[in-house]
Amino acid sequence: MHDPNRRLPGERIFSVLMVAVSLFLFYTATQISGLSGLAEPGSFPMFATGMMVITSTIITFKTLRLPHSDVHGWKSVFPGLVILTIILMGFYALALQPVGFLPTSFVFLTIANWVMARGNPLRAALTSALSLVLVYVVFRLVFSVLMPEGIVPEREILAYIGSILNGGVK
């Protein structure tokens, strides 16, 4: 749990970063339609980002005054597993379009499962394949969510299976 009277590792950087982001967004908001008028498209964004600037600045000053937390080290704040998972998801997102949903998801599930369970990679691959089949049936077949196909010619395969079910290849 977060202790409001102690400062965690990285909290200072985060607060300052939020101020920077808020300032940047506020600047962008002022560029939308300028400072004229109450009912301009930029009026409300300026109000919202202005609030962000004010509150993030107050938060930063408060945070800077807090004593350093002695209980938490960097490691307990960002365990290796969390960092690894974030990196893994980043790669997943990048590979999704070019490689396609099925292979990327399989690799992602297997590695994540394997790392988290610290178990048998084969078992991880098997559980992943099973869950992926389930997900595929529900999302792709029942709900027609067309995830990127990538290198797997899914629609051709489905049509082929369909034509077999429909009485063999004509």
Partner: peptide
């Protein structure tokens, strides 16, 4: 859903 029914 996948039965196309068309000639291949």
């Amino acid at each position: 859903l996948v039965i196309a029914g068309a000639a291949f």
